[in-house]
Design a protein around this nucleic acid. Structure first.
Lengths: 223, 223
DNA sequence: ACCTGAACACCGTTCAAGT
DNA sequence: ACCTGAACACCGTTCAAGT
């Protein structure tokens, strides 16, 4: 008999075999195409031409998948340092790169706060942060803790920004209205400062201010 | 005919009328009884003996409900200041109270990062923070921005802690294993610091360190 | 006007059964 | 051994219809 493959009946001729890597790839392309909020186990299974149960052979649960995804995304970060660019500037740059990476992927940003995204690229990022801090004269113990604080800030900023951009019904107008209604007797300081509490300066400028403030605090710990 | 109420047939004799306040109350009791992760629109409707559609007469969506809930929870915070307790200590205390309030309510902690929880109690909290900062000699502009940074840190810490306590399959052991596997050539600094990056010091001590670092940074901005 | 049953369009995860 | 159909146990939100 001739060796015509009976499998060749299928439309998509060679459905690639499932694997952890194939799943992460498919997840990434859903995120790029439809947005991170559209990434679900069921949709991901659909993308791979199978049922959702099949994914659970390769990933334990959604949390684990997210951790994997975050690490994969981190690969896109430039983590080099020429040693010429001042360490403080390099630190600012890598943190805002990291934030930007997550801001357009709301659900992942959220996951990044909840999971410890273990993985080689995450380690690379931490390594760079530690290296920069040490070169700035920060003590080893302080550097270790600062990494946490800096990444927490960058991640939380991404979550906030992604959330506010999404605007689930809320907007800045509501907030400034609430603030304007602040009773002068009950909130004398707020009444004086007004909307500056929330809106003073642009996003970039505030981000830069925050990182500089963090760094000043960190440097103060190292004397 | 006698004026026997036909309504008295019902088991729970007087189902309270729906209202925004009643909904928030019911939501709070679900959170207290079953945990914040069990709070859903459908369950909430069940608690109030009605269908989920009825809730949408009083709240726009889940996000709005969460904002409401956070403000209500904030009412439980002690926001007084005798002016005798050093401002820095008072600030530390209110921030860790706020964190603790959210840590046991995972989903709300998450929401607190995403929504601007407008409401009277939130304003009270901000007012206290501004007041403490100003009394510490911080400039008005710096105080306004610092409030953001301090609350972001406290909220993000609550989210992280709640998440790690939940342990969706991940645990510290995984992470320290990853860290131990850090290639010495690729991650010389990490290899030297080891697990200290993640585990040095207890939760409370690290929290205190972070707030002090933040405050030192803030004070450095004000000279 | 105020409320809601029922439907729409989804979820994550498990498990028994198939190859 | 590896994979998956089908089911379990849910979601948030809308809308046409009822009182």
């Amino acid at each position: 008999m001739s060796r015509t493959e009976p499998i060749s009946r299928r439309e998509r001729p060679s459905k690639p075999p499932l694997s952890r890597a194939a799943i992460v790839d498919a997840a990434l392309s859903i995120i790029e195409r439809d947005g991170a909020d559209k990434l679900t186990m069921r949709r991901l299974a659909g993308e791979l031409d199978t049922g959702p149960a099949s994914l659970y052979v390769y990933v334990k649960n959604t949390t684990e998948l997210n951790a994997q995804l975050i690490d994969r995304l981190l690969k896109e970060l430039d983590l080099s340092w020429d040693g010429v660019e001042p360490w403080r500037e390099r630190l600012r740059r890598v943190l805002s790169d990291y934030s930007a990476l997550l801001t357009s992927r709301t659900e992942l940003a959220n996951a990044a706060l909840l999971v410890w995204p273990d993985g080689a690229n995450y380690l690379d990022l931490i390594e760079l942060l530690v290296r920069l801090l040490l070169s700035g004269g920060v003590s080893e113990q302080t550097a270790a803790r600062s990494v946490d604080l800096l990444l927490q800030h960058a991640t939380a900023s991404a979550v906030e920004w992604a959330g506010h951009a999404r605007q689930d019904g809320q907007d800045l107008a509501d907030l400034t209205a609430t603030l304007a209604s602040a009773d002068e007797a009950r909130h004398p300081n707020l009444a004086r400062l007004g909307a500056a509490v929330f809106t003073d300066g642009g996003h970039d400028e505030r981000g830069r201010w925050a990182i500089d403030t963090l760094l000043d605090g960190i440097l103060a710990r190292s004397e």
